[in-house]
């Protein structure tokens, strides 16, 4: 075991333990760690956006070659329009910038989302029913699961009789899905805890674990 001599490791160790003290009850150490995290995060993003966007993508190209980059003034003006929201008298100007952002974002995104998130997913449920490959056939389960779950969310007809039965089956598929998601969530949270334990054992106390 070799204790770390890096002061940053010990600072990280202190804040890790400070956060964990919340498990006992809310306290000063937890609040300190929480506020430091929020403050550093905010500072990081402000510096990053300023350097990468304002300086990197606007000021530097304009100041080095104005002739080829003068079109950058248009998005810069749009950006300034966004800030007008803080002045009620001129807040209407921000709508132009928002309209452009929403319009271009939807234009870029919609066709791809429909293609990748709807159509290709739909094709993936149009499967041959195969009893020979694995047990009852995964394809059959996928088809029944998709159809029954969709029928559960079909509210134009009362869930009675055959429709009600299929909708109930849909609930079972949904519950299994939620259960799997919850199980994975537990696993994820524990992984983060394991990560911190590994940090303490390996980086702080210098233990050889593998």
């Amino acid at each position: 075991m070799h204790l770390s001599t890096d002061p940053w490791v010990w600072i990280a160790f202190f804040f890790t333990l400070s956060i964990f003290t919340f498990l006992w009850k809310d306290n000063f150490l937890y609040k300190l760690a929480e506020n430091v995290t929020v403050g550093i995060g905010m500072g990081f993003w402000i510096v990053l956006w300023w350097n990468q966007t304002v300086v990197g993508q606007f000021w530097t190209p304009l100041s080095t070659d104005f002739g080829s980059n003068f079109h950058l003034i248009i998005p810069a003006i749009m950006g300034l329009f966004m800030i007008t929201r803080i002045i009620p008298k001129y807040a209407w100007m921000s709508r132009y910038a928002l309209a452009f952002t929403i319009g271009s974002g939807a234009g870029f995104g919609l066709p791809r989302v429909i293609q990748g998130g709807v159509l290709q997913q739909l094709y993936a449920t149009l499967l041959p029913i195969n009893f020979t490959s694995v047990g009852l056939g995964y394809n059959l389960i996928i088809i029944i699961g998709t159809l029954s779950s969709l029928i559960y969310f079909f509210f134009s007809k009362e869930h009675k009789g055959a429709i009600g039965g299929v909708a109930k089956l849909g609930i079972w598929f949904l519950m299994i899905g939620f259960g799997a998601t919850f199980g994975y969530t537990v696993m994820a949270r524990l992984s983060l805890f394991i990560g911190r334990v590994l940090f303490i054992l390996k980086d702080v106390f210098g233990m050889h674990l593998f």
């Binding site: 997913q121 993936a124 899905g177 799997a180 998601t181 199980g183 994975y184 969530t185 696993m187 994820a188 992984s191």
Partner: peptide, 11 residues
């Protein structure tokens, strides 16, 4: 991906 998102990514 993180385990939280794994179930959603199988489709």
């Amino acid at each position: 991906i993180t385990a939280v998102m794994a179930a959603d990514s199988y489709p």
